[in-house]
Write a protein that binds this DNA or RNA. Structure first.
Lengths: 331, 331
DNA sequence: TTGTAGGCGTTATCAA
DNA sequence: TTGATAACGCCTACAA
């Protein structure tokens, strides 16, 4: 900038002002533009950050970088933020609570202007300490009780409710579910949906039809086998995330069981998977793109100082795509 | 820091020196430590960066955040770098060459201390301009001719060579391959391995057995179907990345074809997938973890000013895991 | 060992 | 509209 000032015969202050959208005489504008171009000048964001106390950087924290559902969301968020001049520091905490805390501290230390995170749980203190520093935080996918901040969720409860309801409508009486870990928010909600629809239709829940997995491929595989090997196996199953759906499909493929004749199945998340499987898989589709959009725009709003209806909790609807993997039950 | 100075009755310079490992009197050390602790002082990396011209940030650029192979590598790199005090700015370019250039510029503008990238190709200029600014660059997964910089590769050629060789040893004469896009470095190499082993074993290559996919699930699915629907189908197939392997497995599952009786198959990349499939899938395993480690350590070395054997090209070996998905051909 | 002073590249205030 | 000047928080000669 000093060079630009010298070359254009103006002061540093004037250059700075012009760069930040201030007015200069038309003739000066021309000179400055010329100098900037010839010198290839670009503002030093570091120095600017020192002065403005803004880094134009948003921290993104997810449970794992090795899960496509998470990284897809991150990808969308990043696209939007970068268009608005923000860069991102993306971290994962490898599904480890203590690492989650560390990474959060790390982001704070990096002076990020805001944080979007998928929390694993419990540690309200850490998140609250971030919020108390006046750093805008947006929670996605998982809510946290006892924390006052904006949250973008998927309506997990109704997602599984609707899926199971469809099965019920088709006449299924014994419906299995492969759940995620009990301490994960989304897993709790999805199970709740399963339970509630049973209540609403006045059906008793057989606890042996509820299988608790860990959101990983193997558990989907193993638990689906467990279900079909039961004395009285379910006639339909809901698998509640992508990885486990993948495992479940594999399990079915290698058994003698036919979908949907022997068992109806509804999976989760991955449209691509659903298309490649035969028969095409019915799935619950989460609005991955929308989650990212809403979260990114939310934090952009807060960053601009717009604190209207804070804290806001947005619940996005899932879509239920029904294909040939489910079928009416024959009596 | 000013506060720490005041509280401890010493000068800012002394505090700074102490923080950066300088010597102070034992009694002062105690006072300073106490002040730091009580004030919860942490150095402002931004301000420090302004002075030192270092941001302690490494840029990571990958083709897509929605591909688990890429993000796994990134995850490993990030773990190592963060342990060494570096943070990362992770970007993807959504497999788009013009975006790749933009993101690279973006990282430079963010004053990253170094860049690790998986280049898509062609644009030597951009990368060279980065290198010319004396920013250490490490290329991973894909090499770039005409660029002088450290590169961490997988020995793709021998990966497919060895896989196909095993099939040949088992007596297969007609071996199909499902390749990736022609303009992707790894795809070229993997095809070369296929071709070379044919030459070495004096086998002619039937061009109709070479299917060009796009590294996406659908193409694996479609092309495998094409292969088995040929008049004279291959007795074995090599599928050259994870996504396409997934597709291929799905295709096989829904056809009447039995593995390995009707066709032998070797896939790529995903150990988990291989385990879940029945019969267990033979696969080429890329050293995902190692790639990240080597790349991270490489750039850390350069960052320390160690320029020994620059530019170095490291080629990591893949592992061939043979399972029941391949079988001796019966004559 | 400690402190003074200048500077890193910006922005912001206040006169001119 | 422009410019001199101080300040952001830190580092680094150099002097004490």
């Amino acid at each position: 900038m000093k060079d630009v000032a010298r070359k254009s015969g103006l002061s540093i202050a004037t250059i700075s002002k012009y760069i930040n959208g201030g007015n200069v005489l038309e003739e000066n504008r021309v000179v400055i533009d010329k100098a900037i171009k010839e010198l290839g000048f670009e503002v030093n964001e570091i120095a600017r950050g020192l002065k403005t106390n803004k880094t134009m950087t948003i921290g993104l924290l997810i449970p794992s970088l090795e899960n496509i559902f998470f990284t897809s969301i991150v990808s969308n968020i990043e696209s939007i933020l970068i268009k608005n001049g923000y860069s991102t520091i993306i971290c994962d905490y490898k599904e480890d609570k203590s690492l989650e805390k560390q990474k959060l501290d790390f982001l704070v230390k990096k002076m990020v202007d805001g944080i979007i995170t998928m929390p694993m749980g419990c540690d309200l203190e850490v998140i609250n300490s971030v919020i108390n520093r006046n750093i805008p935080v947006v929670l996605i996918d998982r809510a946290l009780k006892g924390v006052e901040c904006d949250t973008v969720l998927v309506d997990n409860l109704n997602a599984s409710y609707n899926a199971v309801e469809q099965l019920i409508i088709l006449g299924h009486k014994r419906i299995g579910i492969i759940c995620g870990p009990e301490d994960i928010y989304t897993a709790q909600e999805r199970l709740k949906g399963y339970e509630r629809v049973h209540e609403d239709y006045d059906m008793t829940i057989e606890s042996e039809l509820i299988k608790k997995g860990d959101y990983q491929v193997e558990s989907g595989y193993r638990l689906l086998l467990e279900l079909i090997e039961m004395e009285e196996p379910p006639t339909a199953v809901l698998v509640t995330n992508y990885e486990m759906t993948l495992g479940a499909v594999m399990a079915i493929n290698e058994s003698d069981i036919k979908v949907p004749d022997d068992i109806s199945i509804i999976g989760f998340d991955n449209l691509q998977l659903a298309k490649v499987v035969k028969p095409p898989l019915s799935i619950v589709i989460q609005p991955v793109k929308q989650i990212g959009e809403v979260a990114a725009n939310m934090i952009l709003r807060r960053l601009k100082g717009d604190n209207s209806n804070f804290p806001s909790m947005i619940r996005l609807k899932t879509e239920l795509m029904l294909k040939d993997s489910i079928k009416k039950v024959e009596n």
